[in-house]
């Protein structure tokens, strides 16, 4: 079966979508990512969509669902690498990806995840001291 690989890097899961996904494949990715967050105790998910030539309402909903499910499971999601023409089209289509963090590239996305993880750890330490 066709699948999109999910890589683990420290506390984070990385996904790079390199194929033109049909709807079932998008749903499989959503399910597998959610399961892996729990299995790996992941604190962040980075999704690279720089190879995606379009985001329609179905893929937009998948991205928003992943971000929501991840948040419920105590992980943050950052979507990186959206092409400008994809962003323009999404806005006209009416998709705004509420609740989804974005960054221009993988490097910036990792910075966001790292700083979120750090601030969370600091909060945790302060909490245990008082």
């Amino acid at each position: 079966m066709e699948r999109i690989p999910i890589l683990k890097m420290g506390k984070f899961l990385l996904v790079s979508i390199q194929v033109d996904m049909h709807d079932r494949l998008a749903l499989t990715l959503q399910d597998e990512l959610t399961a892996r967050i729990v299995e790996e105790n992941a604190k962040g998910v980075l999704i690279d969509i720089s190879a995606l030539e379009m985001v329609d309402s179905f893929i937009g909903r998948m991205l928003a669902n992943i971000a929501t499910m991840a948040r419920i499971l105590d992980a943050e999601t950052v979507v990186v690498g959206m092409q400008p023409e994809v962003a323009i089209t999404m806005v006209e289509l009416g998709l705004s990806l509420p609740g989804v963090r974005t960054a221009l590239n993988i490097e910036k996305g990792m910075e966001i995840l790292n700083s979120l993880l750090q601030s969370e750890t600091q909060d945790g330490t302060e909490g245990s001291e008082t």
């Binding site: 709807d23 030539e53 379009m54 985001v55 329609d56 309402s57 179905f58 092409q83 400008p84 023409e85 994809v86 323009i88 089209t89 999404m90 006209e92 289509l93």
Partner: peptide, 15 residues
């Protein structure tokens, strides 16, 4: 950008 708009519209309507 217009290719992308047309392809996205196609995706919605074909679905």
């Amino acid at each position: 950008v217009d290719q992308t708009k047309l392809v996205t519209a196609t995706s919605e309507l074909a679905r």
